[in-house]
């Protein structure tokens, strides 16, 4: 890279590092939402069955 390897590769590294991290965190946040709703549904189901008894 004609003596500029440091600057060029760091630029590419940071760019794709940031984009991949953002992709990963966006994909994994779906799991968080789903688990949260699941927990809420379980709690509500338990409350309901308690009331029935």
């Amino acid at each position: 890279m004609g003596g500029y390897a440091f600057f060029v590769w760091w630029s590419y590294g940071i760019t794709f590092g940031v984009l991949l991290w953002l992709t990963w965190s966006s994909l994994s946040s779906k799991k968080k939402v789903v688990n949260r709703v699941k927990r809420a549904m379980k709690r509500e189901a338990m409350q309901q069955s308690n009331q029935v008894q």
């Binding site: 984009l19 953002l22 992709t23 966006s26 946040s29 779906k30 939402v33 789903v34 949260r36 809420a40």
Partner: peptide, 19 residues
């Protein structure tokens, strides 16, 4: 990339807001 990611994020957001 933006088109794909904004849809991924918007889907999560919709799930959360309509939880």
């Amino acid at each position: 990339f933006y088109a794909a990611l904004v849809l991924v994020r918007a889907r999560n957001e919709v799930l959360y807001r309509d939880r």
